[in-house]
Every structure is written in structure tokens, then in C-alpha cells.
Design a protein around this nucleic acid. Structure first.
Length: 506
RNA sequence: GGCGCAUUGGUGUAGUUGGUUAACACGCUGCCCUCUCAAGGCAGAGAUCACGGGUUCGAGUCCCGUAUGCGCUACCA
């Protein structure tokens, strides 16, 4: 039997990283077993479902490199099948019509209401499962339905006994029937409900393994009851530990904002492979404890048995731009940026530069080698792709900003630089062959002659040439920027020193 | 309210059938390297394995209880 798994998100809002992780694990399992990975959009809640959200889900999967097999399924398209299944169960006496008028609910306080209702029922000694229509005769039920009386369809759950199943992650699970209410299959307006739809679609799609979030663990019992009523085989279940916010609370879009959206990581300069790698480590670990894993290694090492049971905390600090997301994720992204094959990185840098109007066609033509060299040089200390257009801007454009603290630290601190730097530019201009070695020799010699430390000129040059206080080895930078640009930028320093003098006058 | 799941340093985790000073990664501190910042190398701080009982010669590992967190409990998904 070939494995068939599915990712079944509801298209309300952007792709949540927890959902993305579910998709990843399903995909990995399919790859590992040579099975199929299917996509089903659970859009039965038409009020909240949007096309935009569906698109963002597909984009997200594509970004992570998770290609799905076969046709994408929209759950709403199967509503007739869901209804037919429910009606069949009514005919067979496994489900019944409930003519109780639909209760008014306040969506905002459902959880509270559930608890309150349970409490009052317990006090009054009422069995929550009691329903006057459960044992209504077939003839009477048919008659009232034919008369146009509205009804919901509920599954008739046996009074005695219990369900059990073996969860691949959480182990044996049991639940007494007395804990399960007769669940509604069809609303009184004919709309099929979640548990029914999922089961019917999973059967329809031939799903063999259901891999999803732990929030569905207890609902699984209801679904198993449905499989049994439908007389079909029950798939294997593997539930995934939840991903929590730093306060160990639920990680929600509403509360935590964009950190939970997968697209955020794409938009903020993550390398897909890095984020995929990080995501895989949330709730799963490789047998040998290896952490940097390529896709093929992930597929190779992945197994459902190594998934954890305890929830994973996604660590980030709100309102702190430096720790806007999990530090390990950031570290891993940096690791990928500086170690991945340069050929794979170049297109990503290209996209980043293009988005910031820094891209020039020569970078893929006459300046190909130069471009690859720059990227290779500056990537060593970058954390995200964004850094190429921000801190790295001076390498691609003459129009770049100077970091305030860099100017203070490397330029304004020593008045001699006002004359030294232009004089040094003079020296560089005279060099016949311009490369790192020549620049170094020139600089060290000039420093000695001028009676200043080489470091003063090096750091001053760094800020004049790149606007930054930090960066690659300076002599490499001289070479990569080229003689002309170095000379020009070193001479343009006057404004800084004028400002300095002005400050001094006050 | 009921039911379920979880609980190893700040975070992610290892700890296969109970047996030496609880391991790894990120982060943090210091040193080395050095033109800066990273990277890299070295060293270090940080966990009485939620708590309380029990079983045992011996428990993070087994049992019971408590606490905390989370989930489910809906004519939401």
C-alpha cells in the first residue's frame, strides 16, 4: 500500500508557521516512503475563507519547496458527498435527525459557555448526551422532515463502550463513549460540519496517514466513530506537538502578529532551505542529533517515531528588532547564507537587489565574476538576504547612507583624518596595479610616513567607502570596489569634517 | 465543570531495556586571532531533570498524587 498523506489548511488568513510545519512533516513522510503528498483546502467556512489566503498557502508551500501531488482539492466542492454520506447514515439508523431549534451562540464566548453549560448540567444531574429525538421512530422522523421541519443530523453514539486508537506519536489513546456527545454531522441548513467533511474527504482521497496538530488529538475519537459507522478502514494517526509562544501560550496571529506568518520569513530575507531546516527541528530531531540538514538529509533522517510529545516554544521577543524571531532561526539563516553554494545564493541576492532597485544587468554579464566575488565577500557576516541591500548597499550603489555611530567612531574621532584621507586617495590614484596587496602596501607605507597607526586609516576608509563601522577585511574591500570608486569616496569626506568643525565651534 | 496531553539549564533538544561527575545546538561571559565586526579556536557560567511520595542496592528513566501549561468539549475549523 502506498502512503498517501495530506496537508489540509483552512484558508483564513496567512499560512501559520505551525501549519507550515505540519505541511513539512507530511511532505517529508511522503518523500521518505515514496508516497503522495496531497493538498486539500478546507474552505467550508465560506464566511472566513478567502482566495487570497489560498494563494498565500500555495505560495508558502512553493517557497518551502514542498510540491504537492495530484490536483488540489477544495473541500467545499465535496459538500454534496458529505451530505449524501450523512443521509445514508440516517437511513441506516446510525445517525438521526435532531429537530431541536438551533440555539443562538455567541462565538466570542463559546469556550466559556461550554464550561458553564457543563457545570449547570452536572449540578442538575442532566446527561449531556440526552436528546429527545435520538430514539424517535423512523416513520415519525421521516414525516416531520417531509413536512419541512428543519433538523440537524447527529451521529448516534453507543451508550456503552469506548474508542481506542494507537497514535504514532502519542501512543495508545482511549476515550469512553460517555465523554462524547452525539456530534452534529449536518447543520439544520444542510451545511456539513468539519468532522464529517474531513473523514469523507480523507476516505475519498485514500489517505493512509493523518499527520496533523495535536489540537485534533481528542477529536480523533469522534472521527474514528465515523469511520466505523461508514464501515471503512481507519487511517493511521500521528499528532504533532503544538508550537507555543514564549509565554507558553498559544501562538496566534492576532496576538503575535507577523512572526507567525510564513510569508514574513520570505519577506524578511530568509533562505527557504534555512527556514525549512529550522521548522523541521520544531518538534522533531534527527537520531544522531545532527541539526544542519539539507532537504535530502531531512528526508533520509525523518521518521514519525522521532517526533516529540511536548510542545515547542518558538522563542522571540516582541518589540525588539534584533530578536524579532527565534535566534536559532536567525543563526541558521546566517549559517546557510555563508556556507551554501554561491551559485544558489546569487539568484536570491539578485532578487533582493532588484526589489531595491540596485540590480544591474551587468552583474549577470560582464561583471558576473565581480558580482559573485562581492557576494562571497560580504555574505560572511550577514544574517538575512535583506542585509545585501541594506548594509551591503555601498557595494552596489554610490548612493548609500552613513551609519551615525560609524561616522562618530571612525571619522570624527580624529581631526587628522580630514587631511589624511584625501591624501591617501592621492596615493591610491597613483597605483599602477590596483589590488588588495597593493592597497595594503600603500596604506601601511602612508601610515608610517604620516606617523599614524594603520588602523586609523583602515577604519576611516571603511566608513568612507562603505558607510559602515564593520565589514570584511579592508584590503579586500579596496580591491572589490576598484581604484576609481575608492579614490572618489575617500575624497568626498569633506562634509563630515565640516560638520565636525561646526560642532567644535559651538 | 469533564476528559485528554505535556513538564530535562533562557530556548530547541539527547538521554533506546533504571547503573560512573545529565550530553549537544542556539544564546550568554572571557581569552586567542585581528584593521572593525563576524566566522573560527579555546575556556567558562547556567539544570538538585516541575513538586511530593513510593518501588529499588540504585530513578530524569517505573508507579501514585499535586501543581502548572496547553488542547478538546460548538448546528467553528
Amino acid at each position: 500500500m502506498t502512503v498517501r498523506v495530506r496537508f489540509a489548511p483552512s484558508p483564513t488568513g496567512y499560512l501559520h508557521i505551525g501549519a507550515a510545519r505540519s505541511a513539512l512533516f507530511n511532505w517529508l513522510y511522503a518523500q521518505k516512503t515514496g508516497g503522495k503528498f496531497l493538498l486539500r483546502i478546507e474552505d467550508t467556512d465560506l464566511q472566513r475563507s478567502t482566495d487570497e489566503s489560498t494563494r498565500s498557502i500555495i505560495d508558502g508551500l512553493e517557497w518551502l519547496g514542498l510540491h504537492f501531488d495530484e490536483e488540489m482539492i477544495f473541500q467545499s466542492a465535496n459538500a454534496d458527498k458529505h451530505r449524501a454520506a450523512a443521509n445514508k447514515l440516517v437511513d441506516e439508523g446510525k445517525a438521526y435527525r435532531d429537530f431541536t431549534p438551533r440555539a443562538q451562540r455567541d462565538d466570542a464566548n463559546v469556550k466559556q459557555n461550554i464550561a458553564e453549560r457543563a457545570r449547570t448540567q452536572a449540578v442538575a444531574g442532566v446527561d449531556p448526551r440526552s436528546n429527545e429525538y435520538r430514539d424517535l421512530s423512523k416513520a415519525e422522523s421521516d414525516r416531520r422532515a417531509a413536512a419541512g421541519e428543519p433538523f440537524a443530523v447527529r451521529l448516534k453514539i453507543a451508550r456503552e463502550g469506548k474508542t481506542h486508537f494507537e497514535d504514532i506519536v502519542y501512543g495508545p489513546q482511549e476515550r469512553a463513549y460517555s465523554e462524547i456527545e452525539d456530534l452534529v454531522l449536518l447543520r439544520s441548513d444542510g451545511h456539513p460540519l468539519y468532522n464529517l467533511s474531513v473523514v469523507i474527504d480523507d476516505i475519498e482521497m485514500g489517505i493512509t496517514h493523518v499527520i496533523r496538530g495535536q489540537d485534533h488529538l481528542t477529536n480523533t475519537h469522534k472521527q474514528i466513530l465515523l469511520y466505523e459507522a461508514l464501515e471503512t478502514s481507519v487511517p493511521q494517526f500521528a499528532h504533532l506537538p503544538l508550537i507555543l509562544a514564549p509565554n507558553k501560550g498559544k501562538l496566534s496571529k492576532r496576538k503575535h502578529g507577523e512572526v507567525v506568518s510564513l510569508t514574513t520569513y520570505r519577506d524578511r530575507g530568509f533562505v527557504p532551505a534555512a527556514f525549512r531546516n529550522f521548522l523541521a527541528l520544531l518538534g522533531w530531531s534527527a537520531p544522531e542529533g545532527k541539526e544542519m540538514l539539507s532537504v535530502s538529509e531531512l528526508v533520509e533522517e525523518f521518521s514519525l517515531e522521532h517526533i516529540h510529545r511536548s510542545p515547542a516554544v518558538f522563542n522571540f521577543q516582541e518589540n525588539d528588532p534584533r530578536h524579532w524571531t527565534d535566534e536559532k532561526a536567525l543563526w541558521m539563516n546566517a549559517e546557510y547564507i555563508r556556507t551554501m553554494p554561491i551559485a544558489e545564493l546569487l539568484p536570491m541576492v539578485k532578487a533582493e537587489l532588484r526589489a531595491n532597485k540596485l540590480w544591474r544587468e551587468e552583474y549577470e554579464d560582464d561583471d558576473r565574476e565581480w558580482f559573485a566575488k562581492v557576494v562571497d565577500l560580504i555574505r560572511q557576516r550577514f544574517f538575512t538576504l535583506k542585509d545585501f541591500s541594506a548594509q551591503g548597499r555601498a557595494y552596489f550603489s554610490d548612493d548609500f547612507d552613513f551609519a551615525e555611530e560609524a561616522v562618530n567612531k571612525n571619522l570624527r574621532k580624529d581631526p587628522r583624518l580630514k587631511d589624511l584621507l584625501p591624501a591617501f586617495a592621492e596615493r591610491l590614484e597613483k597605483l599602477d596595479s590596483f589590488n588588495a596587496e597593493a592597497a595594503e602596501n600603500a596604506l601601511r607605507q602612508f601610515a608610517e610616513e604620516s606617523g599614524v597607526k594603520a588602523g586609523l586609516l583602515i577604519n576611516g576608509s571603511r566608513t568612507m567607502l562603505t558607510g559602515q563601522a564593520v565589514g570584511p577585511s579592508m584590503f579586500e574591500v579596496f580591491e572589490i570596489l576598484g581604484q576609481k570608486r575608492c579614490v572618489e569616496r575617500l575624497r568626498s569626506g569633506v562634509p563630515w569634517f565640516d560638520a565636525m568643525n561646526a560642532l567644535g565651534d559651538v
